[in-house]
Amino acid sequence: MNLLQQVKVLVYKDLILEWRAKYAINGILLYVVSTVFVCYQAFKSVDAPIWNALFWIILLFASINAISRSFVQESTYRQLYYYTIVSPKAVILGKIVYNSILMVFLSLIAFTFYAVVFKNPIGDPLLYLLAVLIGSFSFATVFTMVSGISAKTGNNSTMMAILSFPVIIPLLIVLIKLSNNAMQGLDRAISTNEILVLLAINVITITISLLLFPYLWRD
């Protein structure tokens, strides 16, 4: 099998596993819904920048919860089995693709729910949606690699938070800026810079993950 086929098989496998257990989806959805509700009850109505920041913080924690399990949920023996039949690059790419699909799905639902419950006028909904999509994709690429690293240490959830927050902050700053532009309904040409930076960071992250992961799994 070449790399592409291996990735396809691995993503398919992850999707089926998720579909059978529905653990991540249901758990995270419940988490998102209850957090949105708590925020709504606590704030009732807020200014646009705070609304925006709250949404990204909710999404950040949801994605950390969703992705931190991606390497821990499978036993070391099963991982050993994967490594004997597929290349490590396929393993990390498969995880990135699967996590991106999961995150896009989750963030779309979260966004819809957030926008419905916690009403706030958005100037340019399409651009905001684009920001949410790029954001969930970026979360997936960065957190997948970090979860791979933290899975190798014992106390997973703490390490995940310590390692991933500093790395995700630059992305988050650009994302919040981009979505703020979208909320104010500014001309789209102003936001091209931010979109390009986000895409560039994603390309760099994926390249580095591909280069480093083969070293990571070999114990």
């Binding site: 690293i149 190798k152 500093p166 790395v167 580095i208 480093l212 070293y215 990571l216």
Partner: peptide
């Protein structure tokens, strides 16, 4: 050594 090297390059 290995895992911290990986994180260092990543960061």
């Amino acid at each position: 050594a290995k895992i911290s090297a990986i994180y260092n390059i990543f960061a």
